[in-house]
Amino acid sequence: MTTFKLIINGKTLKGEITIEAVDAAEAEKIFKQYANDNGIDGEWTYDDATKTFTVTE
Rank of each mutant, 00 (worst) to 15 (best):
K11W: 07
Q33H: 08
G15I: 07
T52W: 08
E16K: 01
D41R: 09
W44T: 02
V22W: 05
A49S: 03
L6C: 02
L13H: 08
Y46F: 09
I17R: 07
A27C: 01
T56L: 14
T2K: 07
A27M: 01
E28A: 07
E28F: 12
E57V: 02
G15S: 06
F4G: 00
N9G: 01
T2F: 08
F4L: 06
D48P: 06
T50D: 06
G42Y: 00
N38A: 09
T52K: 11
A24W: 15
V22E: 13
K11H: 10
F4H: 04
I19F: 05
K29N: 13
K51F: 10
K5F: 04
E43A: 06
A25Q: 12
T12C: 05
A25G: 04
D23F: 04
K29Q: 10
K5M: 04
K29W: 09
I30E: 14
E43R: 03
G10S: 07
Y34V: 06
A27E: 00
D47A: 09
T2W: 09
E57Q: 03
V22T: 07
A21R: 06
A21C: 04
I8E: 13
E16P: 03
E20D: 15
E28T: 09
A35I: 15
G42V: 00
N38R: 13
G15C: 01
G42K: 00
K14M: 14
E57N: 01
T45A: 11
K51H: 11
D23K: 11
K32M: 11
I19G: 12
L6A: 07
N38E: 04
I8S: 13
A35C: 03
N9V: 11
T18Y: 13
K5P: 01
K5R: 13
K32N: 11
K11C: 02
Y46V: 15
T18D: 11
K51G: 15
D41M: 06
K14H: 11
N9H: 12
M1I: 08
F53K: 00
D47R: 11
T2P: 05
I7W: 06
I19C: 02
A27K: 00
T12L: 11
E28L: 04
E28H: 06
E57S: 05
A21P: 01
T45V: 13
M1W: 14
K32C: 02
E28R: 09
K51D: 03
T52Y: 12
A24H: 15
N38C: 02
A49H: 14
L13K: 02
T50F: 06
K51W: 09
I19N: 14
G42E: 01
V55T: 06
E16G: 02
Y34P: 00
D41W: 03
E16W: 07
Y46W: 05
M1L: 14
G15A: 05
Y34E: 04
D47W: 09
I30K: 08
K5W: 01
T54A: 09
G15H: 05
F4M: 02
T50H: 11
D48V: 05
F31S: 15
I30D: 13
F4N: 00
T12V: 14
E16I: 01
T52C: 01
A21N: 14
A35W: 01
T2S: 07
L13A: 01
L13S: 05
T52V: 11
D41H: 01
D23T: 03
D37A: 11
A49R: 14
T45D: 07
K32R: 12
E16D: 12
E20K: 06
A49I: 10
A49D: 07
I40A: 05
T12R: 03
E57R: 01
G10W: 06
D37M: 09
I40H: 13
K51E: 13
L13Q: 11
N38Y: 05
N38D: 08
A25D: 13
T54W: 14
Q33N: 07
A25V: 10
G39N: 08
A49N: 07
K14C: 01
E43Y: 15
G10K: 10
F31Y: 09
I7Y: 09
E26V: 12
T54N: 04
M1Y: 15
I30H: 15
M1R: 08
I7F: 07
D47N: 11
F31H: 03
T18A: 04
A24S: 06
V22N: 12
K11D: 03
L6Q: 00
F53D: 00
Q33K: 12
A49W: 10
G42M: 00
K29D: 15
T12Q: 13
D41I: 14
T18Q: 08
N36C: 01
N9Q: 11
I40S: 03
N36Y: 14
G10M: 14
M1A: 12
M1N: 04
G15Q: 13
A49Q: 15
I7C: 02
E20G: 12
E16F: 02
K11F: 13
D23R: 12
G42A: 01
I7T: 03
W44I: 04
T3G: 03
Q33T: 13
G10T: 12
T54L: 07
V22A: 14
G42N: 00
F53S: 04
E43M: 06
T50L: 14
T12A: 04
F53H: 15
N9R: 05
M1P: 14
D37Y: 04
F31P: 00
E20W: 10
K11A: 13
A27N: 00
N36D: 07
T3W: 05
I8P: 00
I19S: 10
F31K: 00
T3M: 13
V22C: 03
G39Q: 15
T52Q: 15
N38T: 12
A35R: 01
N9F: 07
D37W: 06
E26L: 07
I17G: 03
I7P: 00
T3I: 13
N36K: 12
T2L: 08
A21T: 10
N36M: 14
D47M: 11
F53T: 09
K11N: 14
E16Q: 05
T52P: 00
T18N: 08
T2V: 13
F31R: 00
K5Q: 05
T50Q: 11
K11R: 12
E20Q: 10
A35D: 01
D41S: 04
E43V: 12
K14V: 15
A27Q: 00
G42H: 00
D23W: 11
G15N: 06
K32D: 07
K32L: 04
F31Q: 01
T18M: 11
V55W: 02
D37Q: 07
E28G: 15
T12Y: 13
Y34C: 01
T50Y: 10
T50N: 10
V55A: 14
E20A: 09
E43I: 12
T45G: 04
Y34N: 07
A27I: 02
F4A: 01
T54G: 12
A35G: 09
G42D: 06
I17S: 03
D48G: 08
G10C: 03
D48R: 09
T2R: 08
L6S: 09
W44Q: 11
G15Y: 11
I30M: 10
A21Y: 14
L6Y: 04
K51I: 09
A24F: 09
K51N: 03
K32H: 03
T12H: 13
I7A: 04
D48I: 04
D41G: 10
L6P: 00
G39C: 04
T3F: 02
A21K: 10
A21E: 15
E28Y: 10
I30V: 09
Q33R: 05
G15F: 05
G39I: 14
A25H: 14
T54R: 10
I7N: 12
G42I: 00
V55I: 05
T45Q: 10
I17Y: 14
A25N: 02
D37C: 01
I7D: 04
D37T: 12
Y46C: 01
Y46M: 11
A21H: 10
I19H: 09
T56I: 04
G42Q: 00
K11M: 03
D23C: 02
D47F: 02
Y34F: 15
K32F: 07
Y46D: 03
G39M: 14
N36T: 10
T54C: 02
T54D: 14
V55H: 11
A35E: 05
D41F: 15
D48N: 13
T3H: 13
Q33M: 07
K5C: 05
Y46H: 10
D23A: 08
F31I: 07
